[in-house]
Amino acid sequence: MTWYIDQGPDSDVMISSRVRLARNLEQVPFPHRMDAQTARKAADEIVKAFFQDDTERKRHYLLVDLDSLSLEDRLALAEKRLISEDLAKAGDGSFHRAMISRDESVSIMINEEDHIRIQSMQPGLNLEQAFDGAKQAASILERELPVAYHEKYGYLTACPTNTGTGMRASVMAHLPGLAMGGRIKDTVDGLIKLGFAVRGHYGEHSKSQGNLFQISNQLTLGISEEDLINDLKRMLQQLIEQERGVRRELYRRQPLLLEDRVMRAFATLKSARLMTHEEATELLSTVRLGMALGLLPNLQPSDVNRIYALIGPASIQKAHGQAMTPAERDSARATAVRDLLERSGA
């Protein structure tokens, strides 16, 4: 079972946790300055250093030549957050690779913005375990490769804002209560003033859909990884209580209105014949809220998580093995959602 199907701590608000570590090879130009020969050599060295002759590691990780995949296949990986959208859309010929664990909890991107970008993901609010997974992969590579590191500034990265720890710790937060209560703008503004970054579902440059927000640290220099995680976690625990409080208050004030909204969303998911990706994520957000309030006792979080993972435009096309028009995708998406809900018994 892949990691994102499971539930984790506080997963009624914090859908998932991710820790990303950026590393670069010493004396090698950053990816945006590399020629093809250098990019190929760097990719080969990184892959060799990670796998070595470790049979168990080779069995646990899948090496993906991203340049050999179609754009739709790369975007499907991005929709599952296994690679970045920038890497998915990057042109061929730059020797882009990814090493992805079989349970999809750890992925190592090669020749993205940095030579190495390791990301480790866990369900719920579980930043410590996500960090452990990323650090373990980084340690393997750092033992075998000369990594660009400065005694004063820390790990050197292509973007100066990542220099230092090279770490971005983030969560995917589901905040329908704050959104419905008209408090989301003030909340986001407050988080930004405190020094945190708030982005949409797919990270930088993306907008929020389905009340999902990616919240991460911005500071990477002059502070340890553990302190960064602790600072982020303290803020998130306050945000969790705030979101839960608003949900309870909304339900106390207008129970029938909220129940009607949840049941209408659930009924639409079970019966619609056409459904855009944006509509599906909004309906699933409302259903997830209803589950947290105990209104849909027969529906399991794993069922909703499974639907989320399969409804992106590229994922729909990949499942059908062909390019599709928007209308064809909307029809296939609605069918997939109906089938998944029917199999869940909800």
Results as ranks from 00 to 15, higher is better:
Gly166Val: 10
Val188Leu: 15
Ser344Met: 13
Gly154Ser: 08
Leu212Tyr: 08
Met275Thr: 01
Ala336Asn: 07
Gly93Ala: 11
Ala39His: 11
Met291His: 09
Leu69Arg: 08
Gly345Trp: 14
Leu175Ser: 15
Trp3Pro: 14
Gly177Gln: 10
Ala49Gln: 05
Glu72Asp: 12
Leu283Asn: 07
Thr163Lys: 12
Met109Ala: 14
His320Gln: 07
Leu156Asn: 05
Arg252His: 07
Tyr202Ser: 10
Ile140Trp: 10
Asp53Pro: 10
Ala49Trp: 12
Glu79Trp: 10
Met121Phe: 03
Leu250Thr: 07
Ser224Tyr: 13
Leu62His: 07
Ile184Pro: 00
Val262Thr: 06
Leu269Ser: 01
Thr220His: 13
Asp10Tyr: 10
Lys207Ile: 09
Leu156Lys: 08
Ser94Asn: 09
Met172Ala: 11
Glu278Ile: 04
Arg102Tyr: 13
Pro301Ala: 12
Asn305Glu: 06
Met275Gly: 04
Lys48Phe: 04
Asp53Leu: 04
Lys233Trp: 09
Ile240Phe: 05
Lys185Gly: 08
Glu26Asp: 13
Leu21Phe: 09
Glu279Val: 03
Thr325Ser: 12
Asp53Ile: 13
Glu204Cys: 04
Ser84Asp: 09
Leu310Cys: 07
Arg288Met: 14
Gly166Lys: 15
Thr335Arg: 13
Asp103Leu: 14
Leu289Ala: 09
Pro146Glu: 04
Val47Ile: 13
Pro255Met: 00
Ala90Met: 15
Gln237Leu: 06
Lys152Thr: 13
Leu239Lys: 02
Arg234Glu: 06
Ala78Gly: 11
Gln136Ser: 13
Asn126Thr: 03
His277Trp: 04
Ala323Met: 11
Phe95Asp: 04
Leu63Ala: 12
Thr55Trp: 04
Gln129His: 14
Ser208Trp: 04
Ala76Val: 11
Asn126Ile: 00
Thr276Ile: 06
Ala137Ser: 15
Asp114Gln: 07
Cys159Thr: 07
Lys318Ala: 09
His32Met: 10
Ala90Cys: 09
Ala332Gln: 07
Arg244Asp: 00
Val147Leu: 14
Ser331Gly: 03
Gly195Met: 15
Asp92Ala: 06
Gln122Ile: 01
Gln317Met: 12
Ile215Pro: 06
Glu328Gly: 01
Met109Ser: 07
Ala43His: 03
Pro297Glu: 08
His150Thr: 03
Lys48Ile: 06
Gln238His: 08
Ser101Val: 09
His174Val: 15
His150Arg: 07
Glu204Tyr: 03
Ile192Asp: 04
Pro176Leu: 07
Leu175Tyr: 13
His60Ala: 15
Arg23Lys: 13
Pro31Glu: 05
Asn298Lys: 15
Ser331Lys: 14
Ile184Thr: 06
Ala43Pro: 01
Asp44Gln: 13
Pro160Trp: 15
Thr161Ser: 12
Leu299His: 02
